[in-house]
Design a protein around this nucleic acid. Structure first.
Lengths: 340, 340
DNA sequence: CTGTTAGCGCGTTCAA
DNA sequence: TTGAACGCGCTAACAG
């Protein structure tokens, strides 16, 4: 068991200086072709590979981006990390990972950790509970670019890539109206999430196309737990005007809601229909699938976020201040074929 | 926009040497309480945080582990990475990520990359196509511990944590026999995977409990694509003795297989029943779910792998050679309640 | 108790 | 065409 070889070692074996070795390895133009060959040959024999840590250390760049997501076991985020890794590898960047588990404290801690690792940039989807954004101040002070992804904070002057779920929600409501539904409910997520407010906006705009008046009691929130969803469902089903269709926050909420509806002896797609926000492809194989899904394209979104960050990083060399990138991917309604 | 503060900066401002600053920050015992306080106060004011890269650089340890998995968007692996991140964060280790996308070449390249980043250790689930293990030789030579996870190579003297799918398969076959099935087929994955060979072993052992003779033509392989699965299914259904039950490689294969069976007008759970290897919880909500699932506990498995690696890393300091850890998690059959 | 010095591995002047 | 010297930020051995 040995340590990885260094240029010093090569230099000693060849009785030349380390700088010559360094130059030879980099195909410096004013170097003796012979020494270059000798050096490169020995380097190959020793399996020499430059110690990136040392290089990064002196160059003060790590070619590593930090990625902080709430929970990697969620389909949406695992798709995202997959895309981020793909995109950054393509540009010779590495990915340093962290999960906030939707805790603000943990998020803060991870931000500090990746910063101490001197990442070049950060992609982050903020925790549900995050209200305070001070932990990003230091990043700003040190000029480490941050691209917010999907769950974006409501503050100015940031780069972000997010999905506009409003358009998809509008489409969903219109689609339901076209299919004869006149009492459309919304089973929404926590209202502090920007995307939940977008869902509400979309819901309202969708109704505007129709002489139907907006009834706020048709919008209820769940904390995303099964119990929360059941409570929300109970509330909706207690209404005088029971909804015949529901737009639900995501697939898991939809499944829980459908299960509850069935327990209440409602016929799915007859007494009540569902529209989901897509997380998982398997939703189409479920026993009582939603009739439509609002697709959010997590892979494309995350890929875009990575590209934005990498461009910021390359621009940084020319120390031109780039304007804030605010990129929105449009969500889109996908109508499912009915299973026989 | 400034650079992060360094001990040098603090030293200059306080007119003391950098080593004094360093000691003060580390609560060195033989340091003036006053200077210590002054240093720590200033450090706090400047938001000083040690540059881990510099520390790691000179300590020759990075407190970073590399993780290479085939595809992070697969449920099984996203659960794994989630567990690995959780466990390593707990021990102040960071995670450097890579996806092989089941390509041996890419896997090799990523191994080189993480090695050049001087990771302290590696957790890897090898690519389907990997036949050659030379890219791990360098890691061995440099004493970087590797823990193989789930997809383990068939070579001696390695650390690994894997799931024994044989036991679960035995249970599955016995369960099917108990339920009256007498022609049980297996829709297996690529045979070079160790776990596929385990499935076959389990299949054979399961049959041994019964005076039924083993018919090799009841075992077919798919390359995991939908088309491959359909071809495999066609082959099985062409047999004289058509299987009344199938043990399928994983959830996706199972879904494709079920879809194909339905297209062939077979009644699921009547003409033919399915047992799956679990990837996703949602499988229980599908329209025609398998009657049972062999659970592999990816979270626990990955957590264990991380703990093994971290222990190796801590042991390394006492340069005692640790024996090869070969840890096997038992898979387990979970029988699904029939949906009404 | 504190300062000086050296070195981790590398690239990059500046000099020769 | 090459080598010597320096510095990136930090710790540690040694000297005071």
């Amino acid at each position: 068991m040995v340590n990885p070889p260094t240029i010093k070692e090569i230099a000693k074996k060849l009785n030349i200086s380390t700088s010559t070795v360094s130059r030879a390895l980099h195909d410096h133009h004013r170097i003796n072709i012979l020494t270059r060959i000798r050096v490169q040959k020995l380097a190959r024999e020793l399996d020499y590979e430059p110690n990136q840590k040392a290089i990064f250390f002196q160059k003060r760049r790590t070619f590593t981006i930090g990625v902080i997501l709430p929970d990697l076991s969620e389909f949406y985020f695992s798709t995202a990390i997959s895309a981020i890794e793909d995109a950054s590898t393509k540009h010779k960047y590495s990915v340093l990972l962290g999960q906030s588990h939707d805790s603000e404290a943990r998020e803060k801690h991870i931000v500090e950790c990746v910063m101490n690792q001197r990442i070049d940039g950060l992609i982050i989807s903020i925790a549900k509970s995050t209200k305070n954004y001070e932990h990003f101040d230091l990043l700003k002070r040190y000029g480490i670019p941050v691209v917010f992804f999907d769950r974006i904070p409501d503050i100015p002057d940031i780069h972000y890539v997010a999905c506009n779920v409003e358009t998809g929600t509008v489409q969903a409501v219109k689609f339901l109206l076209q299919n004869g539904h006149r009492t459309i409910g919304m089973l929404n997520g926590p209202e502090q999430l920007y995307s939940c407010r977008q869902r509400i906006e979309g819901y309202i705009k969708g109704l505007e196309s129709h002489p139907l008046k907006f009834d706020p009691s048709l919008i209820v929130s769940t904390d995303l737990t099964k119990e929360g969803t059941e409570n929300a469902m109970a509330e909706l089903l207690r209404l005088k005007r029971k909804p015949t269709a529901l737009v639900c926050f995501n697939d898991n909420v939809t499944l829980d809601a459908i299960q509850y509806a069935r327990k209440m002896k409602l016929k799915i797609n007859k007494d009540i229909s569902f529209v989901s926000f897509s997380n998982q492809p398997m939703i189409n194989h479920t026993a009582f699938p939603p009739i439509a899904t609002i697709e959010q394209f997590p892979y494309q979104q995350a890929q875009k976020a990575t590209e934005v960050l990498l461009e910021l990083l390359s621009r940084r060399d020319e120390n031109s201040t780039s304007p804030f990138k605010k990129i929105t991917v449009q969500s889109q309604l996908a109508i499912h074929k009915q299973q026989k």
